[in-house]
Design a protein around this nucleic acid. Structure first.
Lengths: 209, 209
DNA sequence: CAGAAAACTGTACTGCGGGTACAGGAGGGG
DNA sequence: CCCCTCCTGTACCCGCAGTACAGTTTTCTG
């Protein structure tokens, strides 16, 4: 009963690491059972097929992802009441968290699924889509709060600006992994922070006359 | 002799579409030969193994990618001498080109390879890394030209800013594909354009006193 | 137009991996 | 004591990557 959950979790842990390095198609069930020390029958007791595994993997990943953002931005909100300052602080905290990852970001499962769409059923694709929409809502909410206080210097669409956060994160992960420069991702988040700062913060100095 | 190149190209065309939809691991050689109407022996006449195919696929993709950027930004340079204006125009042209793709961007092979690293040899990983570094150099060159004329409003590292262009493109593709909203990618490029504009263009209006 | 080289086809085989089927066993809880 | 959860073991089918190699057609070249 308790043991079952534990084994399931272990399979998911091993599978997540493997999938992020080799993709779903490149990850064999045989290697997963070898590494978890389980038998093939044991594996299929927990997951009906690879699609079930992918579903469980993605759901767990998204849940954990949401938890991390919740923690970071609620911590930022605790430290300041100003919506802009707390968002900027949140991006700072996020960038610090990302640069503290010893081997760099392992990769995003949402992106992995995205580049694998045709292999999975509609349910997984919908789950993935909803994860991205949740990011849009999350960052959009914070940006709307900012806009109520600070008029943006340039006209921007809130959803598109919220998507920019996701874009830079997903793109930063790809760059960081490809370049094998773990810090690139954190730097990209800080670059985004500069953008947000510039967009909303009133101009401090006078323009050169 | 000429016929060989043609068949090879046809295989690469079919393979590229398949790989972008299902990843390398999810694409079988058997399905490629079925669609191209070739036999298995014919396939292995052109490519020693899947790794060879991946190598050819990636090299061709990168070359084409470079060609497109060359065209767009040289067209932009033809239209204006100002480095900032021509870069902003280039981003505009790029966004238009992307929003004209009927089914949205099919996906980036560099990202696919990135999420598949462990399946390929070092050579492919190096090729991929060099492709990203080429983007950094390309956009970095243009941004340096801009900085010689326009002092940035905030202190920024050129390479990081250049990487931001790649990040937004890669991330925008992931978002666009996942959301099944073809226009998201083009919008993200325009959002990036707003960022660059704000960073370099002198403030037009006075701040609210 | 001949001959060589290029561009294939056909067949037959190995071995791995996904997946199925099903029988049975250990261990804890009611 | 029995049942339920959580597995193990065995045996099998099929699709697919890759090998081997002999033979055939097409195409270029002298």
């Amino acid at each position: 009963m308790r043991k079952g959950e534990e084994t399931r979790t272990r399979i998911l842990d091993v599978a997540e690491a493997a999938v992020l390095q080799k993709g779903f198609g490149g990850t064999s069930i045989e290697e997963l059972i070898a590494e978890t020390g389980i038998t093939k029958s044991g594996f299929f007791y927990h997951f009906r097929d690879k699609n079930e595994l992918a579903k469980a993997l993605l759901n767990r990943y998204i849940q954990n992802d949401e938890r991390i953002y919740d923690e970071i931005f609620s911590r930022a909100r605790d430290l300041t009441d100003d919506p802009l300052q707390s968002f900027l602080l949140g991006l700072k905290l996020l960038s610090e968290l990302l640069s503290d990852l010893p081997n760099g970001h392992p990769g995003c499962l949402v992106a992995t699924v995205c580049y694998y769409e045709r292999l999975f059923d509609r349910e997984i694709q919908e789950t993935n889509r909803n994860a991205v929409l949740a990011w849009r809502r999350r960052f959009g909410r914070m940006l709307r709060d900012i806009m109520e206080v600070y008029p943006p210097r340039e006209p921007v669409n809130v959803d598109q600006l919220a998507d920019m956060v996701s874009s830079v994160l997903e793109g930063g992960i790809v760059l960081s992994k490809t370049l094998k420069e773990p810090n690139t991702l954190a730097e990209q988040v800080l670059m985004l922070r500069t953008f947000v700062k510039m967009l909303f913060l009133p101009v401090a100095e006078m323009p050169r006359a």
